[in-house]
Amino acid sequence: MERLEVLKTYKIYIGGKFPRTESARYYSPKNAKGQALGNICLSSRKDVRNAVVAARKAVGGWSERAAFNRSQILYRIAEMLEGRRAQFIDELIFQGATKAAAEKEVNLAIDRLIYYAGWCDKYVQVLSSVNPVSSAHFNFSTYEATGVVGVIAGQKTSLIDLVSIVAPVIAGGNSCVVIANENLPLCSVTFSEVLNSSDVPGGVVNILTGKQAEMIPALTTHMDVNAIAYCGNDSATLATIQENAVGNLKRVRAYDKNWMDAKSQDLYLISDFQEVKTTWHPIENIGGATSSY
């Protein structure tokens, strides 16, 4: 008997759940051959609002988790991605990549997650410092998560562009609201299913599909978003983001990188979304001894 094909419904990812967009709209991006990639949620500003609420709720618990546990969870994401590599490769090819490029991209995404999993319980030690001061104080600076980060993912390809920025943001204990690749959204949505099955608490990563131009204003003006990571090179968009960020002095970081380059990963992508906390701890200096701690 001939069976009916079951087409996948691509939904957005908010607070660990897969709702449809609040606006009930969709769009159908096409690949180079003109085939529709699927019916994709056309998220609205209200989805952005809901995602920020979920991200804010999640950030406290996530940033307070033991660093080693965050590391385990990032490693788990890589493991789950490994298990579904065939699906990701198929989707990348359907979106227009060659087989070799697709395989390379999935491999790189897995490796990149493992790279940042390794950093989770090390970046604080490496970045922090004990500072020389000319008073009787033990003075040290340490790093803490910025909070809720709005991520505008790169538009070149859908998996590595997303993973390369989300991984360092969450490795540093932040939660994020991601605006996915507009024209090639499939892997972004499937990646949220990977996140959902990898012990990442709901709300730590929220992924929205739809028109960037529609969501960027709501995300970048939002008073409860602490930082924006913009992956792209459109100077007008960047200017708008910077202007919008002024309302609550959001930290804005822009990246125009080729994420497919194996070297497009480093510690400073983590520290970009960290706040430095410096502590002055008074110490007793006994009998003119020089070293006091």
Partner: peptide, 9 residues
Amino acid sequence: TGIYQSKDY
């Protein structure tokens, strides 16, 4: 204002 708010303020 048209801007989503934060309880921090």
